[in-house]
Design a protein around this nucleic acid. Sequence first.
DNA 1: CTGTTAGCGCGTTCAT
DNA 2: ATGAACGCGCTAACAG
Lengths: 340, 340
Amino acid sequence: MSSSRATSIRQVARQAGVSIATVSRALTTPDKVSDKTLKKVLAQVERSRYKPNLLARNFRSKRAYAVVVLVPNIANPFFAEIIRGIEQVAQQHGYAVLLGDTEGREDREAYYVGLVETRQADGLIQLHPRLPKIAQGAGGLEIPLVNACEYIEDAPCPRVGIDNVAAAREMTAYLIGLGHRRIGAILGPNTSPLTTDRLRGYKLALKAAKIAADDSLIAQGDFTMSSGRAAIAELFNVKEAPTAVFCFNDEMALGAIRWLKSTGRSVPNDVSVVGFDDIEFASFCDPPLTTIEQPTREIGNKAMSVLFEMLSGGKSEPALHALPTKLIVRDSAAPPRRGK
Amino acid sequence: MSSSRATSIRQVARQAGVSIATVSRALTTPDKVSDKTLKKVLAQVERSRYKPNLLARNFRSKRAYAVVVLVPNIANPFFAEIIRGIEQVAQQHGYAVLLGDTEGREDREAYYVGLVETRQADGLIQLHPRLPKIAQGAGGLEIPLVNACEYIEDAPCPRVGIDNVAAAREMTAYLIGLGHRRIGAILGPNTSPLTTDRLRGYKLALKAAKIAADDSLIAQGDFTMSSGRAAIAELFNVKEAPTAVFCFNDEMALGAIRWLKSTGRSVPNDVSVVGFDDIEFASFCDPPLTTIEQPTREIGNKAMSVLFEMLSGGKSEPALHALPTKLIVRDSAAPPRRGK
DNA sequence: CTGTTAGCGCGTTCAT
DNA sequence: ATGAACGCGCTAACAG
């Protein structure tokens, strides 16, 4: 350990021959100090390797200069990218980001909400499909919150994300355009509004093409690869299997492809499979996945910008910031086999 | 906004008819308060929804109760798992984890080191292959630091990780056992001690089998999928190509497989490819990857435990905690073709 | 432009 | 077992 750990502002002041207030000013508002003393003070700060105690500063300013990001699963590359976006602008504004991986457990969620209730963090960015329980006060939100990624109907907070209905509709229409008429869907958890929206887009496209909906073509997953594998097995356990399957995220699509291959089917020759999100692995799997690209980085950036606004000014109009998506055509979808 | 934001300890004390010291004690050391007043105080705390200001508490105790985790790339699932492990025990001890994704940039690294210098965090867990520049004081470490994942020779801090030499040797020996004699290697960045160690293990195994080392069988990558793709192209750009390739992480292996397939080669029939880490995607790709499993969760757990010890007691003996690895045999490696 | 003073919310002596 | 008083390191108000 170093001998002079924890140099205080007092020591610097004494050794520089000024008051502590002057040291403080020199560090935070240099304009208010004469060049001469400024130089003198900074020199001494340098010499004694003084680092201001931000714990004290934050305490004084009643701000933690930290935000927590609630994420269901940090191991999901999709969330990882968004977090990067958040962190990027957080750092620009001098905020740290506290990682809140809930792993789906409510107690952990409550713990992180507690962090802002006890002032260890100033606000919260929610990447979950639902609002944190604790955050829903009777007469409005208790804590600064912005919802990213998952669009919540009537949420009393700003939301940033994409138009899931439109994107899902575009993807389904693409499959229809290829000639498919029996198009399966593998959903996410039904607690997720994101699932609801994508399902709506899927059905809208079907309807527009005058294709009757068929519930036996729909299976449920939970956004994990193994759930995708299990779900597609269900879909093929019926008399008339789909010729194309729309998975509501890339990981389930990878799981589905895995199953199809293991049963001797070829993708896309026998069955087309498409995903959603465009995670990095989507372009490196076999076949490369046709999917929907989300502007993850931008979503993160925007979410943090909005939160920062709330924290600074106080404008908390529950606006919806929709960012554009893009259909990425690769090789996992093709026209259906003749005769089918 | 709620009407009574920021209830203070003073209000609670007044309304409960006790002193603030008693409220403080009731919350932190309930034993030192009589049952009767304890009940009274807690009831009032409940009623006025009082949450202690941890900013103040931390200030007083000179502790941030937060640690920062420096990670080169949060989008890498391998790191994500370790972070989960860290977070798990951090939460148990009442510590928050600040995410420090450096994206390889030194300025961002410095920023995060600054967080602990200014007391916004109490310690640091390093997932990089090198020590943070700033942390290397002349006469020892300035800040509590533990190094995880990447083993640094003579690091002046505790390290937790695996025995990379032994694991790489085991994998190489496995390939040799299959009958391969021309075994390529795709390395990580050469700044990484992890690369050095795995390379040593690889060479050790070769030597033990009396196979001459051949530099044209070695290519460099940087742990990304695209670098794996590029590196293997190099390896096959020579007269005598390898029959098996050992990639120093799974992502490069996926990139390599991608390239082999795109050039019409079959894995493992034409070429065997193995990885390292056992990320989740490794079991869902085609073919499922033979690789080395690391106890990621445990690495994270242990790293945080060790840091917590340092923060509490002060024992900072630079011990090395080696955790066991496991060879996972899947389908991406097979005996070489006859006649080769 | 600079120094003096006060106080942020809490834990912690010291009395009682 | 409880209360009064002090101070952590810093910034903000006021005076000079």
